[in-house]
Amino acid sequence: MSTNDALGSPPRQLHSVADLIAAIRAFIHGYNERCQPFHWARTADQVLAKAQRNPSA
């Protein structure tokens, strides 16, 4: 299974830099249409406490 199959979209070939730029802009436009704010699952204090416990991580 390729990366494109996992995303549910068929693979596509880009034949020029202009095609690549157009594909990137289309992706950004679609992403911005569906974007949602990030919701933190932990408080800042909880994140910092865990970071201090695991200095090697």
Rank of each mutant, 00 (worst) to 15 (best):
Q13E: 15
N4D: 15
P37N: 09
Q13H: 05
Q13R: 10
H15G: 15
R34C: 08
A41M: 05
C35E: 13
L20H: 01
H39S: 04
G30V: 07
K50F: 10
D19Q: 02
D45S: 08
A22M: 09
A23N: 01
N54D: 06
T43N: 04
H39N: 10
P37G: 08
N32H: 07
R12P: 03
D45G: 07
A6D: 15
H15A: 11
R34V: 03
A51Q: 15
Q52S: 02
F27T: 00
A6T: 07
S56L: 08
A18R: 04
A26N: 01
I28W: 11
P11Y: 06
W40Y: 11
A49D: 15
Q52Y: 06
L20Q: 00
A44Q: 08
A18K: 05
C35G: 06
R12D: 14
W40Q: 11
P55M: 05
S9E: 10
V17Y: 08
G30T: 11
A57H: 05
A44K: 07
M1D: 14
P55G: 01
N54E: 14
H15P: 02
R25I: 02
L20Y: 07
T43D: 09
D5R: 01
W40T: 09
D5Q: 12
C35V: 09
T3I: 06
S16D: 10
L14N: 03
N54P: 01
T43H: 02
D5H: 14
P10Q: 10
A26Y: 01
R25C: 03
E33W: 05
W40L: 10
L7T: 06
P11S: 03
L20G: 03
A49N: 04
R42P: 00
S2Q: 13
A44C: 08
Y31K: 01
N32V: 03
R42I: 10
I21W: 07
N54T: 05
R25G: 02
A51M: 13
R53F: 12
G30C: 03
R53V: 06
A6P: 00
G8C: 00
Y31I: 01
S16C: 08
G30Q: 06
A26S: 00
N32L: 13
D5N: 04
A22E: 09
C35Q: 14
D19K: 00
A41S: 13
R34K: 12
A26G: 01
H39A: 12
